[in-house]
């Protein structure tokens, strides 16, 4: 984090001129929490190291063609095609740079390893146990189950600030990827399997999460809100959801997991979530349970252009 000032180099990127005055849109320049911070730091370090070789090479690529144009009558060595020194440098310099990159890459792997980020070991206060959240991606919504609180939400991930969050991810039907750009490492959510992810955000804030792996017709609407709130607010929120009349057992889940395009990512809240629901979903997929995508979302364009879309409202 001592390299945080480096982010202002990001401001110089010519892209930003295209993006208008605000850099808010470039989410990755605004990491939040130790994991994302570390990822951003590694980005800056690696790019910086590579610039040591890329920039001079780029300069030569522009200088040589200008300098040695026929018209300029510069020095001409028609047979010169070998120089031990240069060839050793041509192998040696990339080798050194690559060695440095590999070193940082290795460090980074363990620091942000989504299953168990080292960076969180030092950052998270050991006083509070990590908050467990089970994430199930359906076609095409995100279900967040809080197993210890027995509550669940759709498309609304609420977590307390300053507490480590441990996620388990799976999917009911096809592959998706869980992705909150400024906050957590991207991780695939796969049917019949589970993966893990972890993150920690210190200050309250609101972020948008997406699905990163294409999963069918409703994929583009698979975004979800991520709200980091103070611990007290989190407790209140949990209590509110626990009072929700909607309850979630496996039968209710099966209805919910039917292919659904949730335009505008409207949230829902459930109380009394059946214990072991996550495992049950994984095992169901292992047994070959699939949720067929209905005809109107897979049928050819031949049948009726926009039939699926026509049913969808233009605005949420």
């Amino acid at each position: 984090m001592n390299l945080r000032f480096l982010r202002y180099f990001g401001l110089c990127a010519p892209l930003l001129m295209l993006g208008g005055c605000s850099t808010d849109v470039f989410r990755l320049f605004h990491p939040t929490g130790p994991v994302a911070d570390a990822e951003y730091r590694y980005t800056l370090i690696l790019v910086g190291v590579m610039m040591l070789i890329i920039l001079p090479t780029l300069a030569l690529t522009i200088i040589f063609p200008l300098r040695y144009r026929k018209a300029r009558k510069a020095a001409y060595a028609p047979d010169w095609s070998h120089s031990l020194g240069i060839e050793i440098a041509a192998w040696g310099v990339p080798f050194l740079i690559t060695a440095v990159l590999i070193y940082y890459s290795f460090n980074g792997i363990y620091a942000v390893n989504p299953y168990n980020p080292k960076i969180l070991d030092s950052a998270a206060s050991t006083a509070t146990a990590p908050l467990k959240v089970d994430v199930i991606s359906t076609d095409w919504q995100w279900l967040f189950i809080y197993p210890d609180q027995h509550i669940a939400t759709i498309d609304d991930l609420v977590v307390p600030a300053g507490r480590r969050v441990d996620l388990r991810l799976t999917s009911t039907s096809v592959m998706n990827a869980f992705y909150i750009p400024q906050v957590a490492a991207m991780m695939d959510a796969m049917p019949a399997m589970y993966t893990k992810d972890a993150f920690l955000v210190n200050k309250p804030g609101t972020f948008t999460g997406f699905s990163g792996e294409f999963s069918g017709a409703g994929f583009s609407w698979m975004h979800f809100a991520t709200r980091v709130v103070p611990t007290a607010d989190f407790e209140n929120w949990v209590n509110q959801v626990q009072a929700s009349p909607k309850q979630l057992d496996y039968t209710a889940f099966q209805k919910l997991a039917q292919p659904t395009v949730n335009i505008g990512a409207k949230p829902s809240y459930f109380s009394h979530v059946a214990p072991g629901l996550f495992d049950k979903v994984v095992q169901a997929a292992m047994h070959g349970v699939v949720y067929n995508v209905p005809d109107s979302l897979t049928k050819g364009v031949a049948d009726d252009e926009g039939k699926a879309g026509a049913k969808a409202p233009a605005h949420s």
Binding site: L28, L46, M50, S105, I109, V112, P114, A177, M186, M187
Partner: peptide, 16 residues
């Protein structure tokens, strides 16, 4: 490409 081959960076821009 080198950026993407470092997992710490790949986790932030993979599939983007």
């Amino acid at each position: 490409g080198m950026m993407l081959s470092a997992p710490a960076i790949d986790y932030t821009v993979h599939n983007s």
